[in-house]
């Protein structure tokens, strides 16, 4: 009945785990790895263990959308990336990040925290928050409400969120050392859709490169903004609900909505503080101020 020697005997796969892991290392496509991981239970854990630390991406990167740096603990730099990528004949945005030690700049430790695919039309911002000695990445996922035709040419820096609409002509030119994207007549208005929180597992460890999704902040509350985010334990915030994120509309570009309020992590509910509107005449900035803390 046995059709070949790889087969199971009494339900036990004969191939030694270390041999299987070497085979996994030879697979160049992430798709092959995922398919192999579903063959049976014991292989699933081996393949997952082996692929967890990989830096390989299952998609082709079309364009880097943004690139942020955060320095912490004096010798470590964490950078986040957000890319527009091409996968399965569709365009998606994906995100991730990596951590590297400035003392040995050639060895990059990847913290790959991409967990879901976002269709191209929605965009997101991400924030880094130190919370209770942990390191959180908070993704703010925005809905693209509408694109307004403006009448001015505007320069944008390399953080080119908002150039995803193919109906509008986008020209890219390089000036000196900086990539400048010249966009003709476009505005983008966005509105919060949801937040996703990721927790970097021990950024000091050299062998753990995984960020896990957090579904609760327990007794903490986050205030996020581009100009500084903070995590506060509930005990110091009488009268505020726990496990939520206070957010501001802090897009620094042509995003002229007033989309600020509270996001409740438990049920994804959003309470907006101001009536939502957009305005194409002003650019404003908002940030949090914590007068008693500093």
């Amino acid at each position: 009945m046995v059709s070949n020697k790889f087969s199971m005997i009494l339900g036990v796969v004969q191939l030694p785990t270390d041999v299987l892991e070497t085979i996994v290392d030879r697979l160049s496509s992430e798709i092959d790895c995922v398919r192999l991981s579903m063959v049976c239970k014991s292989w699933r854990s081996s393949v997952k263990k082996r692929t967890r630390t990989r830096t390989r991406l299952p998609f082709e990167i079309l364009r880097l959308l943004c690139w942020h740096l955060l320095r912490f603990q004096s010798t470590k730099v964490f950078t986040r990336w957000q890319v527009l990528c091409f996968f399965k004949n569709q365009k998606f945005t994906s995100r991730g990040g990596f951590l590297f030690d400035t003392r040995s700049s050639d060895s990059l430790d990847w913290v790959h925290y991409e967990t879901s695919w976002i269709a191209e039309k929605s965009i997101f911002k991400s924030y880094l928050v130190e919370s209770n000695d942990e390191f959180l990445i908070v993704h703010k996922i925005l809905n693209d409400i509408r694109v307004i035709i403006g009448d001015e040419d505007e320069d944008e820096d390399e953080d080119g969120v908002g150039n995803g609409n193919e109906d509008h002509e986008v020209k890219a030119i390089a000036i000196a050392m900086t990539m400048t994207i010249l966009i003709t007549s476009k505005f983008q208005v966005t509105q919060l859709s949801k937040f996703e929180i990721f927790h970097i597992v021990d950024p000091n460890s050299s062998n753990i490169h995984v960020a896990t999704r957090l579904h609760s902040l327990d007794n903490r509350t986050l205030f996020v903004a581009e100009r500084g985010s903070i995590s506060i334990p509930l005990t110091s915030l009488d009268g505020l609900k726990r496990n939520c994120i206070f957010f501001l509309d802090d897009s620094s570009r042509h995003n002229l909505s007033r989309d600020s309020g509270v996001f409740y992590i438990e049920d994804g509910r959003i309470e907006r503080s101001f009536p939502f509107r957009w305005d194409d005449t002003r650019i404003f900035f908002m940030s949090w101020l914590f007068p008693n803390r500093f």
Partner: peptide
């Protein structure tokens, strides 16, 4: 690795003669 490249999970099971548990 070369042999299982591009195979579906079912085809891999057939290749290794492993039944899904």
């Amino acid at each position: 690795a070369e042999a299982i490249k591009g195979k579906s999970t079912d085809e891999m099971r057939e290749f290794f003669d492993i039944k899904s548990d």
